[in-house]
Design a protein around this nucleic acid. Structure first.
Lengths: 175, 175
DNA sequence: GAGGCCATGTAATGAGTTACATGATTAT
DNA sequence: ATAATCATGTAACTCATTACATGGCCTC
């Protein structure tokens, strides 16, 4: 059901076509929280329309259909956000790899850990750039602001963890 | 393919039956990184056996089959851990909710955020307990040690984020 | 007019969940 | 004997990815 709410949430921010929603899934949300391809998005929008949670507010050239939330849809989204937050689906290949790291020899592990730290640092730079963008007072709050800040905190945590893991391994060479 | 590697990784730690692997999925890995039900695990183990990545090393009463990694399997697991760590599958309902938080009115949002902070704090307590357990010198390193430490870092990040988000909302009442 | 992007769709396949189904062993 | 736990499996369904398919619009 999460895809459904992801779509409702994005449409709550502003109305959009399936194509545009697909783009947005490739950006923030898709990278960090929930991803979907157009082949899943288009049929889901049709279903949401049928359920009257969204409606087509404009049609354009070459079959373009712009969807917007209905009041029912907005209500549905909010009641989901109020429902239990614990333990939804979690699927994180990255963390899975961490769980299995002990399968490597210490020296191999250190090499991999350096890669992780670099990865975290690179992502953190991305997120910091986004946060500066949000700091511009021209925006007030868009969907991404909370998530971006969360990304900053958790990428810093990842980087710190990698540093810890590397020194734990007896290799103190940093950078 | 991740399930496959999750199983290989758990078996690398020590040999196990499908039933036991199912239990382990309900604990650490399943809670934080990757989950699976027995109905998916049993058939996958059969496939892994056919591919000679695992083998049955012991059969017990009532159809019990204990699997162990083969050399091929161990090699497969390691080469996966050496392959590209960037951007695997990410599916995190919790983070999705964060992305969509702006759909709530400020006061509702604060209420939800308090829930998030409490959730993070509770999970952090869990993880800290596990880490004390690992600190016991009787264990050296098992699968979970790196992951648990990562959990500690990232749950602290989540708690800090929630605190930040709550004060950002104009409600400074902490604890 | 060629190539890239906009825009939507369907079909086939694979991954994952829920429900159905069975039966042995252990503890009370 | 009854319930809980051990132990494995299959079937039906839903969710998600990859591949196939079409065509308009815009820029060079």
């Amino acid at each position: 059901m999460s895809l459904r709410y992801a779509l409702l949430g994005l449409l709550n921010d502003r109305q959009a076509s399936g194509y545009e929603l697909t783009q947005r899934f490739n950006a923030g949300i898709g990278k960090y929280a929930w991803s979907a391809k157009h082949s899943q998005i288009y049929p889901e929008l049709r279903k949401l329309e049928e359920a009257e949670l969204v409606e087509v507010v404009e049609t354009g050239t070459r079959g373009k259909r712009i969807y917007a939330l209905t009041e029912t849809g907005r209500h549905e989204l909010r009641s989901w956000l109020h429902s239990e937050w614990g333990q939804g689906t979690v699927r994180n290949e990255f963390l899975l790899r961490l769980f299995l790291l002990s399968a490597l020899e210490p020296d191999e592990r250190v090499r991999v850990l350096h890669g992780v730290r670099d990865y975290a640092a690179a992502r953190l730079a991305e997120v910091n750039a986004i946060l500066e963008w949000f700091a511009d007072p021209e925006f007030d709050e868009s969907v991404g602001a909370y998530a971006a800040k969360y990304g900053q905190f958790s990428l810093e945590a990842m980087r710190s963890w990698a540093d810890w893991a590397i020194t734990e391994q007896g290799d103190g060479s940093s950078d």
